[in-house]
Design a protein around this nucleic acid. Structure first.
Lengths: 228, 228
DNA sequence: ACATCCCTTTGACTGATGTCAAAGTCCTTT
DNA sequence: AAAGGACTTTGACATCAGTCAAAGGGATGT
């Protein structure tokens, strides 16, 4: 299990722990691999534990009876998911599927719970993690309810570009998945990208998008429903 | 501060604590009162601590530049809010206003944080609390993205009626506020209530609503966008 | 190179929901 | 009881975004 312990160091959930705790963690963590598209759990499944992504990407999403999906979160390496059911004892609140070939660490509920009980640092990290997610969800709710799709897209593009102040961004998900992340469908996303191009706010070719007018995008991103 | 300690017993966040801990909590908790409509904090304000509602009701919400509001949560007695900023150290992620005359307990960030560090039971309660909220938010995201307004309203009515299996429910918020909770506006809500009446699914008079056809409402509540 | 599949784009159309405006209702205050 | 104001309802309208259908593009494997 030495390889597992090695992975733990880079995970924010486990930052600031003592060496002894890494060993405890690596004793209870189980490595699992999933192929692209493979399901990790479904909404309502009994929550037997939670997961940390080591490699790949895991999609957490809700799906309607008619088949439309809303992505809640795309988890990359170092991020955790499924924590909620550890603490509420209820089933998983959403579906999880590997969006790429992925490796994850699984921590069984009971063992992890008792570990947390013993370690205030781990508990605080976990609370920070849950809080960040809560903040992100609040932002998503705000966007879905108070912004139109162009606003959500603009915000996302600025987010991608903002990290490095970069002018050119590469979408790291397919446009269909981006649509599901923004709470819309591929056709609508496609039309809005075309419109932003026409307005000279961006120049997109495939997954590459150059931001031509940051100010303009920011204006759209801040807009609520209906302009005055 | 004896009165404060007395309140603590009924709060799930603090359930299962020892007597000594109640005393610690009541030492750091400060009682505050707000009049109806009074603002408790604004989005972006520095998060100096978190709150527990003793009496009244506190509205947590986001507001768009055009003034439309989306209610994230209505906190009643025993519920807490503002926890997120305790753990992320960032500003509050939403606005909080007293929806009714309200009394709350305020726990300063640093003092509470150190208390949590010492008490695993308190930490676990807090994680459960955060998890429940996360689950609720995930449900709200699902509703906003994947259901139309009639679906959200039907679900809400069933939720109100479901508690006691009651046939007659009383709205405990104004219709304007209910609209903000469901992610729509009063006019749309009004029209959909009228439609449900016409369809003989409910019989509403003012804030009183009798559920005539539970099955029918359930069908609408489960529907995603667009019926087949 | 070719065929195939899947993702993306475009067009025509529909429907749900927001906007604006005005009438109606209820409750509180004087 | 009357008056005022806030909340609610209704109507006419605009528009965003989803549906359905089909064409276009790009990647992969044979």
């Amino acid at each position: 299990m030495a390889d597992v312990a090695g992975h733990l160091a880079g995970i924010s959930l486990f930052s600031g722990l003592l060496r002894a705790q890494y060993e405890s963690l690596s004793r209870i963590g189980v490595k699992r691999s999933f192929r692209k598209g493979e399901r990790i759990f479904s909404e309502g499944d009994e929550g037997t534990g939670f997961y940390v992504v080591l490699g790949g990407r895991v999609k957490i999403f809700k799906i309607s009876t008619e088949g439309k999906e809303q992505i809640l979160h795309l988890c990359g390496p170092g991020e955790s998911f499924g924590e909620v059911s550890v603490f509420t004892g209820q089933g998983f609140p959403a579906d999880a599927v590997a969006a790429l070939p992925s490796t994850v660490l699984f921590f069984p509920r009971v063992a992890f719970s008792s570990l947390i009980r013993q370690d205030p640092a781990l508990a605080l990290n976990m609370m920070a993690q849950l809080s960040m997610r809560l903040r992100q969800f609040a932002g998503l709710i705000e966007d879905l309810s108070l912004k139109e799709v162009p606003g959500r897209l603009a915000k996302y593009l600025l987010y991608l570009g903002g990290r490095d102040g970069n002018e050119t961004v590469d979408l790291d998900v397919s446009k269909g998945q981006l649509a599901a992340l923004l709470g819309t469908i591929p056709e609508t996303l496609s039309r809005i990208l075309a419109k932003l191009n026409r307005q000279e706010l961006i120049r997109s070719r495939g997954a590459q998008i150059r931001i031509l007018d940051r100010r303009g995008l920011e204006a759209i991103a801040l807009e609520g429903k209906r302009l005055p």
